[in-house]
Design a protein around this nucleic acid. Structure first.
Length: 272
DNA sequence: CCCGGAACCTGAAGGC
DNA sequence: TGCCTTCAGGTTCCGG
């Protein structure tokens, strides 16, 4: 499940390999992956264009083109981008292929077909859906506090809201709440200043560390070369079925918050 | 605006 | 063995 660290890793890995490359064609084994433009228009606007940059905002990947179009990629839950030579065996579940002028292609594989490709002229549409980048310098505890204030929903649900903070998903929400000793069902607006400061620090540390480990390959996430990240080896509660708390030894509990599997230590993360 | 639940999808895993 | 149910969890849509 690609969240901020996984998407950041894909961006970092692809950047030196595809910038400057020209797109020679698009293959769409599943046309439903393209949103908001016709297949013909999509192909036409991409074919022959040069990729000038690749960046990330929240969980979105943004390929900049020399036409000033932006190719917006969202991997949703099971998407990954695999870069392969055209002479190699293609991966399974390929929904789109971006053919490049150096004999390689970017394969968008996505078991569950939730992934999305769309062309935009500017980033306004995705900016309007996203809150601050948690790793930017201007994401301060005060900014987080303002975004949690007066919210009655659980802190877990609010952390998953991309308008509050961009890029946090189920795994890193659980890890951040565990690290800051906050019960996932606490109303977001009830957190104290000290708890918010702790949570803010935990979010940044955990996301930075996960990027250092090139993301967490808990399910269908792979790096563009097909290898796996190792961030999940360092998870303390996320996907912690049958695990025990590394601090107090209590069994990790699983509850559902907004239909999300939520793991926490009932002793270290109290409701108060 | 805020909140929670359903929908979108497909395969793996577990129960019987 | 095989069928059935449940689980996985990012985003959007919809009703309250």
């Amino acid at each position: 499940m690609p969240e901020l660290p996984e998407v950041e890793t894909i961006k970092n890995e692809l950047l030196p390999l595809i910038t400057g490359r020209r797109i020679t064609g698009i293959t769409l084994p599943w046309e439903g992956i393209v949103k908001e433009s016709s297949i013909e228009e999509f192909r036409h606007r991409l074919t022959g264009r040069k990729i000038t940059d690749i960046s990330r905002r929240g969980k979105y990947l943004i390929l900049s083109l020399d036409s000033d179009d932006l190719l917006i990629i969202h991997l949703k839950m099971t998407g990954s981008l695999i870069l392969k030579r055209d002479c190699e065996e293609p991966p399974d579940y390929v929904r789109a292929v971006i053919h490049l002028d150096n004999g390689s292609s970017i394969f968008f594989r996505d078991l569950r077909k939730f992934g999305v490709l769309r062309l935009l002229m500017e980033t306004g549409e995705i900016e309007s859906k996203l809150g601050p980048e948690p790793l930017d310098d201007d994401f301060t505890p005060k900014v987080l506090a303002q975004r949690l204030a007066r919210r009655t929903a659980s802190i877990k649900a609010v952390l998953l809201d991309q308008k509050v903070v961009a890029g946090i998903g189920n795994m890193y929400a659980d890890e951040s709440l565990y690290a800051s000793g906050i019960h996932p069902e606490r109303p977001a607006g009830s957190l104290t200043k000290g708890e918010i400061e702790h949570l803010h620090k935990a979010i940044r540390q955990i996301l930075w560390a996960a990027i250092g480990h090139k993301g967490a390959s808990v399910n269908t996430y792979f790096l563009p070369d097909g290898s796996e990240g190792t961030a999940h080896y360092f998870f303390r509660v996320a996907h912690g079925k049958g695990k025990t708390c590394p601090v107090c030894g209590s069994p990790i509990e699983r509850i559902a918050v907004r239909n999300r599997g939520t793991y926490f230590c009932p002793k270290c993360q109290r409701m108060k």
